[in-house]
Computed example of a mutant assay.
Amino acid sequence: MMLLLASPFALAQVNTIEELQQQLAQHPIVRGDFKQKRTLAMFDQPLTSTGQFTLDKTHGLLWRQDVPFTVQLVLTKDKLRQTFADQPAQVITAKDNPMAFYFSHIFLAVFHGDTEQLKQQFDMTFKADNGQWTLALTPKAAPLNAVFDSITLGGKSDLERLTLQEIRGDKTDILFSNQSYQPESLTDAEQAQIKF
């Protein structure tokens, strides 16, 4: 059973897409744990990984996988840095690979609950039932509809589940837990990672 820490400022219940947007946008920083399960059509067993994330709405995303091996990912508006274990970091800029950043910006919009930006790229279906909300995103056009069949978000007050269903049959399920909003600014260590 996962422990989910709700914000002391959390809405009692999310019943509309507008309330969801408000709820997900109200904190400048969200930290927590993730468990990711990737099911690939070519493999019998899913690939599972766990780690921690820090989402700073101004500066970007820190994503640290600890299991089964260490990977650090730092995503900002115009740069992506990936480090595997003790290997030298690989840095990609928006200029180097505009398509990677197109997908990265969509991913950040999903995390932020930026429904205005998502509306431009997806048909959206929102449901709220018994204290739980679900937002299903269906890509409208290329290149997203060539990769994803659907992206589904779900939770109570926070984003707790994210499912990426790909056209070719691969699927990624991410569960978020232990979310917190303190401290409300990046630590020195986080700043050193994100401002590269």
Score class of each variant (00 low, 15 high):
L24G: 01
L24R: 01
Q26D: 07
V30Q: 00
K37L: 11
L40F: 15
Q45L: 07
P46S: 04
S49C: 15
F53G: 02
F53T: 13
K57M: 11
K57N: 12
K57Q: 14
T58V: 12
R64P: 05
D66G: 05
P68Y: 13
T70A: 06
V74W: 08
V74F: 08
L75F: 12
T76E: 02
L80S: 06
T83L: 01
D86E: 15
Q87V: 13
Q87D: 13
A89I: 09
Q90P: 04
Q90S: 07
D96S: 01
A100F: 15
F101N: 00
S104C: 04
S104N: 09
L108K: 03
V110T: 08
D114I: 04
L118D: 00
Q120T: 15
Q121N: 10
Q121M: 07
Q121S: 09
T125Q: 10
K127S: 10
K127E: 15
D129R: 00
G131W: 02
L135H: 07
T138P: 01
P139R: 05
L144N: 09
A146E: 14
D149M: 06
G154M: 07
G155Q: 01
K156Q: 12
D158F: 06
L159V: 11
L162P: 11
T163R: 09
Q165V: 05
G169R: 11
